[in-house]
Design a protein around this nucleic acid. Structure first.
Length: 271
DNA sequence: AGAATAACCCGAACGC
DNA sequence: TGCGTTCGGGTTATTC
């Protein structure tokens, strides 16, 4: 499931492969992937040249030479595959396009991902209500204190809420809380300043490290041809149910928090 | 206002 | 072995 680091990696790979190249043709075979709020059809991208590549939270943004933008949210299993020759669509290929020497396939097994073609990026993202980027210097203890003061929900659930900090998903939320030694069910408003500081610091550490590793690859997720085969080598919480805690050897516990699978150490992350 | 829930999908995991 | 059921994941819409 691509979270911020994976999306950042995919952005970089696509920039490397597509920048300044022109879309000769494009086709979308599963119409629901295009959001109803999309101002333009996928077909309208035909003839445009890739210029800018951005990431906002878990959203990929492609900017074109005429000012239009194509926004893609991969959700759980959206992925791009690049080929140097014309290739038949696979079972879950929903979109294909050709630029110069490259054929690009977009696949999504679950059909959960979404995209839009727009010209006003700011207006589009206003409707998404995204919070600060984790690396934004404006992200501070006082900001989180204000945001969390009436939040009785579990901190894990609040970290998944994209309106405070954007880009954290289920995997890295567990990693961040493990590093912070904070119980995932601790109500957000009860966190001390020190703990909020710890969340900010460890969010940056965890996400930066993951970006450096090229994004964590799990299950069917592959970022894009050329960067497949990377596996989570440094996850200390997610997926480690029943395995010894890397700090104290206690068996890691899995619970549900807000309906989401959550792994933590009962000894290191006390309530 | 915040919080809980359903909906969207379908392969994998699970239960019998 | 085979079949039916449940689960999970991010986000949005809906309801309380």
């Amino acid at each position: 499931m691509p979270e911020l680091p994976e999306v950042e990696t995919i952005k970089n790979v696509l920039e490397h492969n597509l920048k300044n190249k022109t879309i000769e043709w494009i086709r979308l075979d599963y119409a629901p992937l295009l959001e109803s709020k999309s101002e333009y059809k996928i077909q309208d991208l035909s003839g445009l040249t890739f210029k800018g590549f951005q990431r906002r939270g878990k959203y990929l943004i492609f900017n074109f030479d005429n000012g239009m933008s194509w926004v893609v949210h991969l959700r759980m299993e959206g992925k791009f595959h690049l080929y140097k020759e014309e290739t038949n669509p696979a079972k879950h290929t929903h979109l294909m396009f050709k630029v110069d020497d490259t054929y690009v396939h977009y696949l999504d097994t679950r059909k959960f991902s979404r995209m839009a073609v727009i010209k006003d990026l700011d207006a589009y993202f206003k409707t998404k209500n995204l919070g600060y980027e984790p690396f934004d210097e404006a992200l501070s203890v006082s900001f989180l204190k204000e945001r969390f003061k009436n939040r009785k929900r579990a901190i894990k659930s609040v970290l998944l809420d994209q309106s405070h900090i954007t880009g954290i998903g289920n995997i890295y939320a567990d990693e961040i809380l493990f590093r912070c030694k904070i119980h995932p069910e601790k109500p957000a408003f009860t966190l001390t300043d020190k703990q909020l500081e710890s969340i900010i610091d460890n969010t940056i550490i965890v996400l930066k490290k993951a970006i450096e590793e090229g994004g964590t690859t799990i299950r069917s997720y592959t970022s894009s041809l050329g960067v497949t085969g990377l596996f989570q080598v440094s996850l200390k919480a997610y997926g480690r149910e029943g395995l010894p805690c890397t700090e104290c050897q206690t068996s890691m516990t899995r619970i549900k928090v807000g309906g989401r699978s959550t792994v933590f150490c009962e000894k290191c992350q006390k309530e």
